[in-house]
Amino acid sequence: MAKTVVILGGAYAGVSLAHRLLKQTKPHVKDLKVILVSKNSHFYWNMASVRAIVPGALKEEQYSIPIEPGFAKYGPDSFEFVVGTAEGIDLEGKTVRVSVAAAEGKAAAGERAIAYDHLVLATGTRSVDAAMPWKAAGSGAEVLAVVAGLQERVRAAKHIVVAGAGTTGCEVAAELAYAYGKASKAKPEDRKEIVLLSGDPGVLGGDSLASSVAAELAKLGVETRPSSRVTGSRALEDGRTEVSLAGGDALATDLYLPTMGMAPNTEYVPPALLTERGFVDVDEAFRAKAAGAGDVWAAGDVVWKPRGSFVLTDKQAAGVAKNIDLALRGKPPVPVKTLPIDVMMVATGPERGAGRLGSVKVFSVFVYLIKGKTLGTQRLAGFVDGSAF
């Protein structure tokens, strides 16, 4: 009897986990079938979103390519790709209810119940503001439309406010300043004023990297305003945006880019499987803790354990793939090993950055080589076709 693993989510965790099962488990579990359900028909390399909004900086195919062709080599008996959205899980009946999107040459849109032997939740998180492209929110075409729209707004703006001074906010401000800031190579008529608002007294929430990143931003000409927490925003009649700050201050800008706030994509998950914050609650094997959910696993930002991170997601996906392999062979799962130390890398434009391995800071050139130079886009094709695993 076939063993079916259903994976919900077509981003870093879901796609890599599917390939790992098909390449490493399928050879000795011959009746294995993997079904990957993704709201997005394309793999969106969102790590590059901070650069993609700069007109001309990246081509579309550098950060978004179709998922399904990357799995064609496995055949329909081993793999199925479903473009759709999970709507609910029946733990007792071991089925997932999916709203399937219409696709050219395929079945019409509708609802489908997909049975599973093992289920992986890898639906990640989304930006609270759906108009921002820091995470994929919608179909491949919708994500590309958001990026293209922002490129045009960036091109037209003379004053840009980036709100939220976490990693994403710092990287967005740095990319914009590198291209258009006071210290950039842009023509005088093309230069823009870039303002970064930090709700805390410093960037990165006071992390030990804060002073290094702040110094890099200053070199690029970014105006960083500490202790400037955003309380709201509204459109003005002249097309600009007014950003309200705690304490009553406000500033008007041509373009407002909020980067703070991520929400887990877990509306379809039974509440018993979630933490108070709405993330999937997992044990050390990254299996759902709730009673009756022994065949449900999770990986990536949807667990936010200990936080969202590309490196952590990849380690978690590898660990869950190993544990499903063990379960399919009747063996107990093992703890998932991630990283022995906390790692943070912040790219401050295409040429520099700041980072640390635990408490040890690393040279800017190291961050440039590891992250800033390409933001990982050279790995996109290998992720989608499985050659990276």
Rank of each mutant, 00 (worst) to 15 (best):
V222E: 03
G169T: 05
T167M: 09
G261R: 08
G70E: 06
E104P: 05
E142K: 14
P306W: 11
L236Y: 07
L369G: 02
A321W: 08
V120H: 02
R51D: 04
S228R: 00
K373L: 14
D77P: 08
G247A: 08
L119Q: 05
R356K: 15
G355N: 08
V54N: 06
K315V: 05
R329S: 06
H159A: 10
T95Y: 13
G248W: 12
V100H: 02
A298W: 12
S364V: 06
G10Q: 09
D117P: 04
S309R: 06
G247V: 07
P69L: 07
E152F: 04
R225K: 13
T259S: 13
G56N: 11
V37L: 12
A109V: 02
F366S: 06
T95S: 11
T374R: 11
T241Q: 14
A285N: 07
G308Q: 14
L326C: 05
T241D: 15
A210Q: 04
G149S: 06
V343R: 09
L144M: 14
P55F: 09
L36R: 03
K106G: 03
A250K: 15
K30R: 13
P66C: 07
D301C: 04
A108I: 10
L255I: 03
S49P: 12
D254T: 03
P258L: 05
E60A: 06
A285P: 09
V230Y: 02
L121M: 12
A186K: 01
E111R: 15
K187S: 10
R229S: 03
A137G: 05
L32V: 08
R307A: 13
H19F: 05
P350A: 08
F310S: 10
R126V: 06
M344S: 13
T266W: 09
K187T: 03
L58W: 08
D342M: 12
T95F: 08
D190T: 09
K59G: 14
L339Y: 07
E223I: 05
A13P: 14
A179T: 07
I160H: 06
A131G: 14
A173T: 02
V50T: 15
K315F: 10
I370V: 15
L121Q: 13
A218W: 08
T377F: 06
D190V: 07
T167Q: 03
V346I: 07
G140T: 11
G292I: 05
M262L: 13
P333Y: 08
E92D: 11
I89E: 04
A18P: 09
L375N: 13
Y268F: 14
E193T: 15
V54S: 04
D190Y: 04
S364G: 09
K361C: 01
R191F: 06
T275S: 12
S41E: 15
I324H: 07
T259K: 05
A381L: 11
Q24A: 15
F383A: 02
T377I: 15
S16K: 13
A183H: 13
L197A: 00
A272K: 09
E142V: 01
F363D: 05
G70V: 01
P271Q: 12
R352V: 10
A141I: 02
L380D: 04
K26P: 01
L257A: 04
E104W: 03
K33N: 10
P264F: 14
R225G: 00
V100D: 00
N265A: 01
P270W: 06
